[in-house]
């Protein structure tokens, strides 16, 4: 009896639908080389694993709650500015940390996007990334699903890459949620028109929007280092909550250290140090210095902690 006959349903998966079953011998199957040899198959599978990761990240209620909080920030800022400027006065003293985007909002709704990114980048955005990255491996370890993925077999390197890619996708999605929410709120509450840059020159609205997109890209890229750090922490433990808390705790500590003047010698090596450099896009000409330093620092963090995560995850015992 041929094995293909006895397992009618799944037997189709070798792509042998049209092939007659007669003449196939039981042992013939075992001697065949592994079927999915072609490179194209591998690529499709890798994409499939990545797609599956994305579903896991974005179908979770927790992820949607994080995104909802991020979408709420521009709404709150927008409403606050609107109430404050109802009588025609302007918002006072924009020196509260970020660049002076706040007082421009009432003149141009587009600035709500920049102000919201400046407001969320220090904590809200990276906290969301910390939660998702910290949970990536440790969460699966604590529920035990990690062992089933690995015996599937997902392959440790591939799984880690798919996880990192999905965390980076979340970075982009989270940034876009802030920007889109800010654009919707800003455009509906405030006038929109030509954009006055920080350097004093004025550019057209479309130029302003292009700069806005570049800023969104830079903000998302600013989170690359933290994503790698969170993923590394995630490979260290079997507790999803523990990894999330550790990543977010580390983020807060580093942000505090980054703001203590006495520790300035250390600060250029901290991943959030150049985060607000994105504001330099709003100058003419654009000052690239801080932006390049930020991207280089993120790449360094990604390389160091990405390798550490790989070294740890590919050698570790999965006992959960």
């Amino acid at each position: 009896m041929s094995r293909a006959e006895t397992t009618a349903g799944p037997g189709l998966q070798d792509g042998e639908q049209g092939q007659p079953l007669v003449g196939r011998q039981d042992s013939g199957r075992e001697r065949l080389p592994a079927p999915p040899a072609p490179r194209a198959g591998r690529a499709v599978w890798t994409l499939g694993l990545f797609g599956s990761e994305l579903l896991i990240v974005f179908r979770r209620v927790r992820t949607l709650a994080l995104l909802a909080v991020l979408a709420g920030v521009p709404l709150l800022v927008g409403i606050a500015v609107r109430i404050e400027t109802r009588d025609g006065s302007s918002v006072g003293g924009g020196d509260g940390g970020g660049p002076a985007f706040l007082e421009q909002i009432s003149n141009n709704g587009l600035f709500l996007a920049f102000a919201s990114l400046a407001a969320t980048l220090p904590f809200f955005l990276p906290m969301a990334i910390g939660v998702v990255a910290g949970d990536a491996v440790a969460g699966e370890a604590s529920t035990g699903t990690l062992r089933y993925l690995l015996v599937a077999p997902a392959g440790r390197t591939r799984l880690l890459l798919a996880k990192y890619a999905s965390v980076l996708t979340f970075c982009v999605a989270a940034t876009l949620v802030v920007v889109l929410s800010a654009v919707v709120v800003g455009f509906s509450l405030f006038p929109v028109g030509d954009v006055t840059l920080l350097s004093g020159n004025t550019v057209s609205l479309s130029d302003g929007i292009l700069r806005g997109l570049l800023i969104a890209l830079l903000v998302a890229s600013s989170l690359i280092g933290l994503a790698a750090l969170g993923l590394f922490i995630s490979t260290l433990t079997d507790s999803g909550i523990g990894a999330m808390a550790a990543t977010v705790g580390l983020l807060i500590t580093i942000q505090i250290v980054n703001n203590i003047p006495q520790l300035h010698a250390l600060q250029p090596y901290l991943f959030p140090h150049y985060w607000l450099s994105f504001a330099d896009v709003m100058r003419a000409p654009v000052i690239w210095d801080g932006i390049v330093k930020n991207l280089a620092l993120q790449a360094l963090y990604a390389a160091v902690f990405g390798s550490a995560a790989w070294a740890r995850f590919t050698t570790r015992d999965i006992t959960s």
Partner: peptide, 17 residues
């Protein structure tokens, strides 16, 4: 989800399997 992690699993027959 588990099937998507298997390199030899054909996505076209996934639903049926």
């Amino acid at each position: 989800r588990i099937d998507a992690a298997d390199p030899t699993a054909d996505p076209r027959t996934r639903k049926a399997r």
